[in-house]
Design a protein around this nucleic acid. Structure first.
Lengths: 141, 141
DNA sequence: ATCAATGCAAAAACTTTGCACTGAT
DNA sequence: ATCAGTGCAAAGTTTTTGCATTGAT
């Protein structure tokens, strides 16, 4: 619930933070760069919010586990709201479209592999790169 | 075979390119940043090679499939020689140590997931982040 | 001789930081 | 009133680019 999330993170409830959180919650794109967020703020806005603030807030949200930061191939960090349902990503190299998926077999295998190597697994990132075929019948994002 | 690889890529055989390729082949670290390579060049060297050249050469090698570029969480790109044996990575968050692995079950699952989503799979990256336990008994790099 | 490759310095792209001002509690 | 949060501009980091010179064929 929006503002409580901010408060629970030990952060004060300010305009930049509520706006940024709302953008992440309501944007049709689930995966956004700091610039993406900044541009939306510029558009819908009365008082400007600095790009530096967007970065600061996103970084704080990440630290509070409200948001997940991804480093896809683009070189630009991408942020998404953390809904606590772990998932991986398929990234379309043509359109940039991102689709999430989750596969328990893969998850399980990863745990086994880590164990076999004496590796304490903290996190992982699996990203498939390719192209969606024309006339997509499913999923948005 | 060293120089042939360079020639086959349509590139002229020059000192920077042969040196950089040799560093990638012989360094005990298999995964190196441009800076890593540059620093080795500085150390063992008579004539200096510019960092810009290192980036250019690595990018050309990547285009020629001689080298694979990774974007791990560090924010700094990491390069490794392409030995044409696909593998994924475990990255130690404490020491930076990188261990490669390959799991056919995961590979197979990825192909199935892509197919199910009408996604033409071109490439993928799976990276496990965590920590290796003390007294490693196996594997290097 | 020709055109690709290089060094150097400058720029670009993305992100972070210092500092004085503003705002939440 | 206090101290966290913000805007702005400046700096940091990593990577790329322009251009004159050098070097491979």
């Amino acid at each position: 619930m929006n503002k409580n999330d901010i408060k629970n993170a030990g952060l004060k409830i300010t305009l930049p933070r509520t706006k940024i959180l709302k953008i992440l919650e309501t944007s049709e794109k689930r995966h956004m760069t700091a610039e993406d967020v900044y541009r939306i703020l510029l558009a819908d806005d009365e008082g400007a919010i600095a790009l530096a603030t967007v970065y600061r807030v996103l970084t704080q949200f990440e630290a509070a586990d409200l948001v997940i930061r991804h480093n896809f191939e683009s070189g630009q960090a991408v942020f998404e709201l953390n809904n606590n349902e772990h998932h991986d990503h398929m990234v379309c190299m043509r359109t940039g479209k991102i689709v999430e998926f989750h596969d328990e077999i893969i998850e399980q295998r990863q745990r086994e592999i880590a164990k076999k190597h004496g590796f304490k697994l903290v996190d992982h990132a699996l990203t498939l790169y390719g192209e969606f075929e024309e006339s997509p019948k499913m999923n948005k994002q």
